[in-house]
Design a protein around this nucleic acid. Structure first.
Length: 209
DNA sequence: TCATTAACACGGG
DNA sequence: CCCGTGTTAATGA
């Protein structure tokens, strides 16, 4: 677990991370961050995947993006700077290990370590781009493109071409109804992009275009 | 036109 | 049997 951090930062920073950061473990489905809660630390994901979602004024949830190994959410940092309540919810997609760095420590490190500074900057850009991607997808793309993106993302996260999810769960993630997911999936199956099973979808080659 | 909601039958686990 | 799936009809944006 620490070897991953060694690749990212110099030994002195790794040592500080080790003593000042709090290492946490979450089981699949555990809520890491919830709406309205206050953020006081920034997480770096060491292993596993985290799904980040938000909700509209009616309480409808929609999936924003995933956080994977070695990624962090620099958004969390700005959130705790302003002592703002969280607009997002984060849930462990599988078993997750992360290290949380308190905001005070972060401020010190930004001056002290150049590797930390560039890591945070990099985190900002990747998070922002990810968010922009999601936004574009939701705003400008039709549902079938979103569905394909969703399936391909899931494939990347799980590392498997077989996605285990019911049509209802997919509909929830994309904030739409099951009827349309069933219909679109059936279309994709007819186009030989995938094969449908109960609670499972097998992606075929040629879906990433 | 296309999504949503409700309703229903089918069938696999 | 229970639940996921496939489909349709009515309604709405």
């Amino acid at each position: 677990m620490l070897s991953k951090l060694n690749q990212l930062f110099e030994p002195a920073l790794v040592n500080e991370l080790n003593t000042l950061g709090s290492f946490k473990n979450y089981k699949e489905g555990e809520v890491i961050m919830d709406y309205g809660k206050f953020m006081n630390a920034m997480p770096i994901i060491l292993s596993g995947n985290v799904r980040v979602m938000t909700q509209d004024e009616d309480g409808k949830e929609i999936l924003l993006y995933y956080l994977s190994s070695n990624e962090s959410c620099a958004m969390a940092y700005t959130c705790c700077m302003d002592a703002k309540q969280s607009e997002v919810k984060a849930v462990a997609e599988d078993e997750v290990n992360l290290v949380a760095i308190p905001q005070k420590i972060m401020d010190e490190w930004l001056c002290k370590y150049t590797t930390w500074r560039s890591y945070i900057m990099h985190s900002f850009t990747t998070r922002f781009n990810e968010l922009l991607n999601s936004f574009e997808s939701i705003a400008f793309k039709n549902l079938d493109d979103r569905l394909i993106k969703y399936l391909v993302d899931k494939q990347k996260i799980s590392g498997s071409a077989v996605i285990k999810a019911s049509h209802q769960q997919i509909a929830d993630d994309l904030a739409t109804s099951r009827v349309v997911i069933s219909r679109l999936l059936k279309h994709l199956e007819n186009e030989n992009k995938l094969i449908l099973y109960r609670n499972e979808i097998k992606l075929l080659k040629g879906i990433q275009t």
